[in-house]
Computed example of a mutant assay.
Amino acid sequence: MIDKPILYYLTKIITVITSILIISKANVDMVFSVISTLSFACVFTLEVWLYRLFSNKMVVVITSLVSMSACFFLGLDILFPLFIVLLIHLLDVTIDPGMFYQIIGVSLLLLFFIFTPDNLAFAISMIIIILLLFSRIILTKLSIYKTLNENQNETISELNKKLTDLKSLIKTLKYTTSIEERNRIAARIHDQIGHGISGSIIMLEAALLIMKDNQEKATDNIKRAITNLRDGVDEIRSALKEERADRYLLGINDITAILEEYKVSYNKTTFLHTTGDLDFITMDIWACIHDNLKECLTNVLKHSNASEFYLNIDVFKKIIKVEYKDNGKSSGDFVKGLGLEAIEERTVQAKGRCFFTKGENGFSVTNIFNY
């Protein structure tokens, strides 16, 4: 890729070659002119090589000043275009970039006012100035975009790393939460239910020992043990009822997790909207919604350029309506492939009906279930 040092190098070489054409029309020794031109070319080549090697601006300053002095010595009226290029390059590496064009404009006006070149040199100088500055603007913008692209790539890499760390953290938190929940349930069973059962076992053992000598007391212990065991069973049922999550929470949390993972993985916007009492949705219907959602999301990636995906779950008095919709605008006629056929079959197995709609606003799949 051409950068500023190469741009100035090529411009100087072209300007030197152009000067030969001017020299050929003047009464100047051609051998001396050719040697001078080759000397300039060697100096410019050495300048680029040293700048690439040491990345020091003083190399450009020294070679530019030497070359400008040579232009005065050989005749500024002939090498005026080259002098202009050398001046622009010298100012480019020594002044503030924010003031470059202002200083260049003032310097060129003073230069043209002090040294009045002939018409040919003036025309060549103007053409070279316009082309050089225009090329410099393009290279500056390309450099800015390149730097911006590199920074964005670094940011994306850092975000991907953070995303991986967050996924690992979420997995760890889920496992830790599961362990803590199991420990809490185990402690509750041990502290409340376990003690009651242990006491009932002791009562039954005591009743067995005194059965022959004191049947009345043994019977009383057995009754008390039965009461404790019955209370224990009731406690177990109460605990299970309290610990078990509502059916709709299991379903909606699973759906939400799928949409969030899809949003993060593929940079798509997802929306979830629900109305009505979700507790009327059975586990079979939740399973159907789960599988159909995955299939619809896969179809969006394969066949649509959609940027947004909508899942609407509406529970009415006698029906459940589930709509999967995207804002994609795929070309071609609607063809029911294996994925859509699988959605339809799955919906029928859950005792529902399936409808497909394709329009200007996107593609949608609608499921209707009775309850």
Results as ranks from 00 to 15, higher is better:
96 D>E: 07
41 A>N: 07
246 D>K: 11
73 F>W: 14
147 T>H: 15
320 I>P: 11
125 S>P: 10
76 L>W: 06
200 S>A: 15
327 N>A: 07
177 T>M: 12
269 T>I: 13
78 I>Q: 13
40 F>L: 15
300 V>C: 08
234 D>Y: 10
54 F>I: 14
298 T>D: 10
24 S>I: 04
320 I>S: 11
345 E>W: 08
35 I>W: 04
78 I>C: 11
354 C>M: 00
119 N>T: 08
184 R>A: 05
118 D>F: 02
24 S>F: 03
53 L>Q: 12
18 T>Q: 14
261 E>V: 01
233 V>D: 09
49 W>C: 09
360 E>S: 13
253 N>S: 10
242 E>L: 06
94 T>F: 03
94 T>H: 04
245 A>F: 06
349 Q>S: 07
240 L>Y: 11
282 T>N: 03
343 I>G: 08
237 R>S: 08
232 G>K: 14
181 E>Y: 03
260 E>V: 02
92 D>G: 06
324 Y>R: 07
197 I>P: 07
161 K>S: 10
59 V>H: 02
166 L>C: 07
289 I>H: 04
114 I>E: 05
4 K>Y: 02
112 F>L: 15
227 T>E: 14
275 T>R: 01
324 Y>L: 15
146 K>H: 04
88 I>G: 05
124 I>R: 02
364 S>T: 00
160 N>T: 08
287 A>G: 00
96 D>H: 06
334 F>D: 05
169 L>T: 08
138 I>R: 06
109 L>I: 14
98 G>Y: 09
167 K>D: 10
223 K>G: 14
291 D>F: 08
100 F>H: 10
115 F>Y: 14
355 F>Q: 10
300 V>T: 11
334 F>S: 03
298 T>F: 05
70 A>T: 12
339 G>L: 02
193 I>G: 01
97 P>W: 06
371 Y>S: 03
124 I>K: 04
76 L>C: 09
12 K>R: 15
177 T>H: 13
40 F>T: 14
118 D>S: 01
180 E>W: 08
336 K>V: 13
354 C>E: 00
164 T>H: 02
69 S>K: 04
166 L>V: 09
266 Y>H: 13
346 R>Y: 02
65 L>P: 04
262 Y>E: 09
86 L>R: 03
89 H>C: 01
329 K>T: 06
32 F>R: 10
290 H>A: 00
208 L>M: 12
350 A>N: 14
51 Y>P: 00
97 P>K: 08
2 I>D: 09
218 A>C: 05
15 T>F: 09
348 V>N: 11
87 L>P: 01
242 E>Y: 08
277 D>L: 04
341 E>Q: 07
144 I>Y: 13
5 P>I: 01
283 M>R: 13
44 F>M: 09
83 F>S: 09
327 N>W: 06
26 A>I: 12
216 E>Q: 00
143 S>G: 13
143 S>A: 15
84 I>H: 02
